[in-house]
Each structure stands twice: as structure tokens, then as C-alpha cells.
Amino acid sequence: MEAVIQYLLTGLSVGSVYAMMGLGFYVMWSAAKAVNFTYGDIFMLGAVLTVVLMDIGIGLLPAALLAILASAAGAAAIERGFVRPFNREANAIGWMLTTIAVGTMLESSTTALFGSNPRMLPSPLAQEPIRLGGAGIYPQELLLPAALVVVTAALELFYRRTLLGRAMRAVAYNRTAAGLVGIDADRITLIAFALAGVLGALAGVLIGPVVQASSTMGAIIGLKGFMVAIIAGIANARGVVIAGLLYGVTEKFIEGYLSTAARDAIGFTLMVLLLLLFPQGLFGKKEFSKV
């Protein structure tokens, strides 16, 4: 029983990270029908920059805030410089290659400058585990689901209640129509990538104290976030959150009852099977293609 609670709690914690990353992919895809393929590096930048800023004597919270803002700016720059010029035609794939290339550059230059060893991201919430129903967990890990709830609610409010959010939905729904009511669709897309950057970097900062910051921490997490978004049906935010949490919990149970080695192999196989059964994703609608 204790083991089950343990897996459930840590699963929800890591699942929250996948869900946040998935939401980031959702935000980018909605606005641009393209994504930053190496979005995991934005996640990594959030954690790594926080550590670097703390090195020069800035406190945890301001460092984290600055790191998130810088990562968001980076995400926006990637949209402007590498996605937009390669996303002019429908079904273009150039943006995929350019963002992968930029991701490679980001990751390797971080390795060179930051070092290849993982570094501590000290947080007062990751010092002493607390006991919950027999399971041991850092408060920092509990922070993640809480943050996910806040992020999801905030995103929902943003999309439904603010003019900018409505404009973003308008761009997602029909770029031409958005332009005709006075919305600069390009600018909105840039903002969407920056917003996704905030989500990704925030996830990185929050999980950093648990997993340590390193240049390679983002690759797999980013990939899982993308797959979670695909499995959910990439155009459904709530689906993405549910799929992310489910995937996190599933992973922890596989890890617990089988092995860490089996975790990703089984996890990805499951995802491929799901995609086989639900080509449009678990919560996706059949897309209608005009002939």
C-alpha cells in the first residue's frame, strides 16, 4: 500500500512536468501548426540558468524568475529566427530541422560552458522528505502538481478571459480571419512561443531541485512532453494534462514493479500502441481535410 502511494505521488509529480511540457507543445502547435522540436532545451535552460544566476549571488526566487524570462525570450527568438521562415507553406518540415539544429547547438554549448556534470539547484523544499501515508516525498515534488493546477487554471483563464488569449485562439482557429479583425497573427505566434517558453522553463526550475540541473536534462523530458501531447490529440489542452499525469504515474509503476530500464521501453511502446488504436489521439477529434 505504501509503495502504491509512493508511486502515485512521485508519478503525479513527474507527470505534472510532462503535462506542463505537453501544454507548451499545445500552445505552440495551436498558434503556428509548428513547434520548437527541441523544446526540452528551453526546459533545461530554465534550470541551468537558475543555477548560473545563483552562482553570481542572486537569490533563488529572483534567479528563477530571471531564468524563466530569459528562456521565454530564447523561445521567442527561436520562433522568429528558425520557425517562421520555414513555416510558410502548409505541411512544411523545414522548421523541424532548424529547431532540431538549434537545440543541438543549445545543448552542446551548454555542456561546454556549464560543464557536463549535473549541478545542484538548491531549494529549501528539497532538503528533508516528508512522510505522507507511509510514502516519503520532498515538498518540492508536491509543488509540481500544485503548480500544474495553477498553470492549467491560469492558461484556461488566459484563453477565455483575456483579449490576448482570445486573439490567440482566433489565430489558432483561422489565421486569415484573425488578420481581418485586426490581429497581427505573426506577433501572436511569437507571443505563443514565449508563453510556451515560460511553461517549459517553469517546469525545469520546479523539477531542478529534485533531478539536478544539467545540459542533457531536457532532451527526454521534451520528447515525452511531445508524445504526451500527440497521444492526447495535440489540440486538446485538458487531454494533454490528463495524458501527462497518466503517463507519469504509469512510468512510476513500471519503474517500481519492473525496472528503471524497462520504464521508457514499455512507456514508448504503450504510446505507439495507443497511436495505432487512436490515430487522432485519445481526446482528439478527427481532423477534416479540405480537398
Partner: peptide, 27 residues
């Protein structure tokens, strides 16, 4: 399973396959 919906998905799956492959070999 992947090319039915979006060719893009194939790319994602192949990346995943690459990671899993290396993981399995290592572990």
C-alpha cells in the same frame, strides 16, 4: 501507426525509438 495522421509523428516516434534503444542497450 504514425504516417497515417501526420508525417511529423513519425519523426517524433523515431527519436523516441532512438532513446529507448540506447537505454535498453545501456541497462
Amino acid at each position: 501507426p504514425t504516417v497515417r495522421v501526420r508525417p511529423l509523428y513519425l519523426t517524433v516516434i523515431t527519436i523516441a525509438f532512438g532513446f529507448v534503444f540506447v537505454n535498453v542497450l545501456r541497462e
